[in-house]
Design a binder for these strands. Structure first.
Length: 336
DNA sequence: TTGTGTTTTATTGCCTCC
DNA sequence: GGAGGCAATAAAACACAA
């Protein structure tokens, strides 16, 4: 009754006619297509879930091959046991089906996998005996289980990385907003100075600023300068603390000046929520930049101090934007 | 009932290790 | 060269909506 080319591919105990099949002796494409399986309905009667003593057959698909020169096969034995030759054909037909492991078997295998996801040969044989499966089935189950575990791990890692990215993106956006707030503050303070300048009339330029061709707008458009100006605000306020700015505040400070607010908003980089792309701006200041900044700050402080004196007058083209001279700017970007 | 998507079992071919 | 692992894949079994 055994089909030619069928080979029992493993197992030990009652049905192990030929020993465990060498993996490299597996029936390949031609013979595997003609390989057969044992019907669950019939082997199921031989398999006792939880049986821990001997291999009684499989409730899952089993491949068969030629055994003992084809003169005796598992099915020969099975036929004798059943003594119903006409039913064997039905078994054979049903044997093409793939069978799933029972819940108990899966549970047992899961527990074993939890203890160790690698399978040593001894453990494989032991599990096969205990579950009534072929050692090869145990190996396959562990192999597939490792693949599923690996997939889950990759999903977890991906999720963790995405969370990390989202947090970084959030931090970046917060910093961006903070930067814009500081920039707006600088513009407000600049307005204060403009107002004061108009009140006091024209002032003269410090020497290093006299040859500047940069327009006030261009000078303050420099992003680095603007960010740095946020630090200026404290100094400016200190210098101006003796001055009554209350009127200026009501007129200028809280005004939604289109000129400046537009500048702020137009340069704000808005990132869509769905976008995972952000590009950090080049905001690091070089040593030269730092020196220029300090120099400018010193100059500005002096300028402001002098502005307190009615005898000292400056022109409108420098104080309002802290007078970065063109040759000292060194920043090649005005908008971003 | 049937079509469709997902899960599970098993095969195949290649690779590495001893 | 054999044994075992892994990725890719096939195919049966299963779940479920229409």
């Amino acid at each position: 009754m055994m089909a030619p080319g069928m080979l029992y591919s493993g197992g030990s105990g009652a049905f192990n006619f030929n020993g465990v099949l060498n993996q490299k002796q597996r029936v390949m494409s031609s013979s595997s297509s003609s390989s057969s399986t044992i019907a669950k309905e019939h082997l199921g009667s031989l398999f006792v879930p939880g049986c821990s003593s001997s291999y009684l057959g499989s409730s899952s698909m089993v491949s068969f091959g030629r055994v003992n020169g084809g003169k005796r096969s598992f099915f020969d034995s099975f036929d004798q046991e059943e003594n119903e030759a006409d039913e064997v054909g039905e078994y054979y037909h049903q044997a093409e089906k793939k069978r799933r492991l029972t819940d108990n078997q899966v549970q047992f295998l899961e527990k074993s996998f939890g203890e160790e996801n690698k399978l040593e040969p001894e453990r494989k044989v032991q599990l096969a005996k205990e579950l009534g499966l072929q050692p090869r089935q145990i190996a396959i189950w562990f192999q597939n289980r490792r693949a599923r575990w690996k997939t889950k791990q990759l999903e977890k890692e991906f999720e963790a990385l995405r969370n990390q990215y989202d947090n970084l993106k959030s931090d970046y956006n917060n910093l961006l907003k903070e930067k814009e707030n500081l920039r707006a503050e600088v513009f407000q303070l600049t307005d204060k100075l403009l107002l004061k300048e108009r009140k006091n009339g024209q002032l003269s330029l410090p020497d290093f600023q006299k040859h500047s061709d940069a327009s006030p707008k261009e000078t303050m458009a420099d992003p680095i300068s603007r960010v740095k100006m946020s630090n200026v605000s404290a100094r400016v306020l200190t210098l101006q603390q003796q001055e009554d700015l209350s009127s200026a505040k009501s007129d200028v400070l809280d005004s939604e000046s289109p000129h400046y607010t537009d500048g702020v908003h137009s340069s704000f980089i808005e990132q869509g929520d769905s976008s995972y792309v952000f590009e950090p701006e080049p905001s690091n200041l070089s040593q030269d930049d730092e020196e220029k900044f300090d120099k400018t700050m010193l100059s500005t402080a002096n300028l402001l101090a002098k502005a307190e004196d009615d005898d000292y007058r400056v022109t409108s083209s420098n104080v309002s934007y802290f007078g970065f001279p063109v040759e000292d700017q060194g920043f090649g970007f005005w908008s971003y």
